[in-house]
């Protein structure tokens, strides 16, 4: 396990270097002068001398590679620079927004997994029953509906008709409920369908008959073997979904005014606040890579044959 993990981690180093290089290059190539942007946002007249001085102070007149190395060293120390908009440290802003997005992502993923997996397993066992048919219709619908529509419907129902939740979500458990539900409905649909398909596939495997033939208890066959063997593809779909959520469920966050990374990115792009955008893209890409790593490691825990790649 340790050897496999180390091998995977070593493989990540070039990926991370490539990410930093791409993020820095993209921002470098983006039209517009950050020094001019900064001076303009502070108000007052911008003279060529003042602009040159600001460019020198911001280090924009140095060669590309020097600026890149400098940026990477600073980032490695947690210094992502300051926001052009309000001169706040980018790291603080990112951390705060990530906290909100992380909480929402964790809550909706956990909620979805806890609901979807038992439903998926049960519908696989009770294939073609009334319950299975009802779940099939619901999961089709949940899968087909776009997030923003679910969010608006929930808002209409719970905030306007029933008036149980505030329209603008507050950073509290109650405020989190509707955005979590809006994100969870399509996820529950996807996870339940995937679990049902995988469990059904496993139930038709011959080892299940082999276990029945030596009188192994049904729950042991189902939960310790069938579900264990189905976990690979369930983890794949859950990890894909987490990556989408971490990337910021922009629309949902915007609808519920949830101050997560999606909202922060949208606002920073509109305001051309490059350090924030740069930091956010870097952090999100790194997180995607780390989630990939965790997914790969969990595959290995489930099925040792993975190490034979």
């Amino acid at each position: 396990m340790l050897k496999y993990s180390l091998r995977r981690i070593i493989k990540l180093i070039p990926v991370l270097v490539a990410i930093t290089l791409m993020v820095f290059t993209l921002m470098y190539l983006t039209p517009g002068d950050p020094a001019l942007q900064k001076l303009t946002s502070q108000g007052g007249a911008v003279t060529p001398e003042l602009l040159a001085m600001e460019r020198h102070e911001m280090g924009l007149d140095r060669p590309f590679f020097v600026r890149y190395v400098d940026w990477v060293v600073n980032v490695a120390q947690g210094d992502f620079g300051n926001s052009f908009k309000d001169d706040q440290p980018v790291a603080v802003k990112l951390l705060k927004a990530l906290g909100y997005t992380g909480a929402l992502a964790a809550a909706s993923t956990l909620f979805s997994v806890l609901i979807a997996i038992p439903i998926g397993v049960y519908t696989a066992i009770k294939k073609d029953s009334i319950f299975d048919n009802i779940v099939r219709v619901l999961t089709f619908t949940g899968n087909a509906m776009p997030n923003f529509l679910i969010a608006l419907l929930l808002m209409f129902l719970f905030c306007i008709k029933v008036k149980f939740f505030p329209v603008i979500a507050t950073a509290s458990l109650k405020g989190m409920f509707l955005p979590t539900l809006a994100l969870s409905i399509p996820m529950i649909s996807r996870f339940a369908r995937q679990t049902r398909a995988d469990v059904m596939c496993q139930l038709s495997e011959e080892y299940v008959i082999g276990m029945h033939a030596r009188g192994v208890k049904e729950r042991i066959i189902l939960f310790r073997n069938v579900l264990h063997n189905s976990l690979g593809s369930i983890i794949t779909i859950v990890s894909l979904q987490i990556r989408v959520l971490i990337g910021g469920s922009v629309v949902t966050e915007m609808i519920f005014r949830w101050p997560g990374i999606g909202s922060l990115m949208m606002n920073s792009i509109t305001a051309r606040d490059y350090p924030v955008v740069q930091g956010a893209v870097l952090i999100l890409s790194t997180l995607q890579v780390l989630i990939n790593l965790l997914t790969d490691l969990s595959y290995y825990v489930i099925d040792k044959r993975i190490s034979m790649e």
């Binding site: 011959e206 080892y207 082999g210 073997n225 264990h228 063997n229 099925d303 044959r305």
Partner: peptide, 8 residues
């Protein structure tokens, strides 16, 4: 491969 779960 019909008697045992292959990956446990």
């Amino acid at each position: 491969r019909g008697s045992f779960n292959n990956i446990r």
